[in-house]
């Protein structure tokens, strides 16, 4: 299949950047990133600068393959990170526009690579949880009700890619923060620092990201299909923590 790519090129953080157009031959069986690899090989052979994009695991678990594809984070396939997206989702002759995540908190470093350290700061603000370390404890020593465990796992599925922020017209990081807050808040191990954690994480979040208006765009963009129900949970946690701590 023959495709035209409109790709955002930007030399470095200070460059203004702009779109460049490339033609590429791809097979429907390639992943999206493999298709970009092919493009980069031709660019390198021609002595041009290859397109910088982030990737690592290529199996949908690390969250580094952040591409805005035709205005949708991670492209058209629901519940799929860019690295797991296949070219068969596109038609021969398609023009595909590829842009970096856009958020004041995610400055573009080069081409399609953005700095997502703002998300790490939210997790960092959450701090530690008080558990005993040492030899592995017995399994099931701490009982966790099944429904809570399932919900906590749903929240823990977050791979921190930032698609929620990228898709949000408010540039809000609510879904990310809510997933991180909820997955610990749902478990017994997360209880001792529960209030302090949500207060700090929300404050850190608000220092760099926008304010949620419940557009719910994030939920569709999320490659792990994390539900905005977690945002309601975080809000509840935040309000009760405030009430308890003044």
């Amino acid at each position: 299949m023959r495709l035209t790519l409109q790709i955002w090129r930007q030399k470095n953080a200070d460059d203004t950047g702009g779109f460049s157009s490339y033609d590429v031959d791809a097979s429907p069986d390639m992943s999206f990133l493999e298709m970009l690899d092919v493009l980069n090989e031709t660019l390198t052979e021609a002595g041009e600068d290859p397109v910088a994009f982030e990737h690592d695991c290529r199996e949908g678990i690390c969250g580094s393959c952040c591409l805005m594809i035709d205005g949708r984070a991670h492209g058209p396939e629901p519940g799929t990170a860019t690295c797991q997206l296949h070219m068969r989702k596109f038609e021969d002759g398609d023009t595909i526009r590829i842009e970096p995540w856009r958020s004041a908190a995610f400055p573009v470093l080069k081409d399609l690579v953005v700095d997502r350290v703002g998300l790490d700061r939210i997790v960092q603000a959450g701090g530690f949880i008080s558990i005993n370390t040492g030899s592995a404890p017995d399994a099931n020593l701490i009982p966790v009700p099944r429904d809570k465990a399932e919900l906590a796992m749903d929240a823990a599925a977050c791979i921190g890619c930032g698609a929620c922020v990228a898709q949000c017209p408010n540039g809000a990081a609510q879904l990310f923060a809510a997933a991180k807050v909820s997955h610990l808040a749902l478990l017994p191990q997360g209880q001792p620092e529960r209030d302090q954690r949500v207060l700090r994480m929300v404050e850190e979040m608000e220092s760099a990201f926008g304010s949620c208006t419940n557009f719910a765009e994030c939920e569709v963009a999320c490659p792990k299909e994390i539900s905005i129900e977690f945002i309601a949970r975080m809000n509840r946690d935040y309000v009760s923590a405030r009430l308890r701590r003044g």
Partner: peptide, 27 residues
Amino acid sequence: QVTRLSQRARPLNYKARQTLQATYASR
């Protein structure tokens, strides 16, 4: 106030814009 916060957080828009499920009412 929250609108201003969001506008500062998202100064640039995408060239290819898409609305995935946000309702007309929400927008």
